[in-house]
Write a protein that binds this DNA or RNA. Structure first.
Lengths: 112, 112
DNA sequence: TCTTGACACCTAGTGTAGCTATGTGTAGGT
DNA sequence: ACCTACACATAGCTACACTAGGTGTCAAGA
């Protein structure tokens, strides 16, 4: 994914993944890549700080777990987090609608 | 429009407006607000530097005009700019597709 | 055995770019 | 005289994704 296209939309992605159940960071990255068809292949340096930020904001809770010698920090949506997910999903919807209105009539590179 | 949602997507918006014909900066802001149903109400400090950047990148050309005592810098898409518009429109499409795939199944705040 | 690679986490620092704040100047209305 | 709309400009701020480096475990292969 080019440039800083997902600037401001990363939180929504993370919350969306965690809406399907608790996950640890590395698995979230995998899941994001899988669900997006490789489009979102996010570096760890992007995801971990974002998770910390979300937890600090009260949107996630976390706990350490140990799976055959590997420690994991498993994140889970809080009630606030679920609320934020709804809000941000709506905001994303509004944003795309506004973009569509502006882009209406603008031709694609291929299809005429 | 909240936060930095349109980070990385502003160029596309500006190119899209100018695809319908040459415009000066202030009018671009108006048109963006109008077309987006007030969603994009961009400050001048956002738009003018972006236009300068696009011109520097060779995507826009500009010329001064004078309309009853008001000087205007009118911007126009270059051939490169039209190409970039197509590419960015496609990139936007891919981005929203990827977002949709990740967001699939995530409920809205209201509708159950 | 030793190296590689996947797994799993962390963070200091960087860069980009939208935004704030402020400035300049004209024209028209009250 | 003052305010608002029009019209442009830019220095500095800030948020945040990303780079680049680090730590440690475990399994597989050379």
């Amino acid at each position: 994914m080019r440039g800083q296209a997902l600037k401001g939309h990363l939180d929504l992605l993370l919350l969306a993944i965690l809406a399907d159940g608790a996950q640890h960071g590395y698995a979230i990255i995998d899941e994001l890549r899988r669900r997006s068809d490789e489009a979102f292949d996010l570096p760890e340096g992007t995801v971990y700080p974002a998770l910390h930020r979300l937890q600090k904001g009260g949107y996630l809770s976390s706990e350490w777990t140990e799976v055959h010698g590997r420690r994991r920090r498993t994140y889970r949506l809080t009630e606030n987090g679920r609320g934020a997910l709804g809000e941000q999903r709506l905001a994303w919807h509004d944003f795309t609608e506004a973009m569509s209105r502006v882009l209406k009539g603008v031709p694609w590179p291929d299809t005429p």
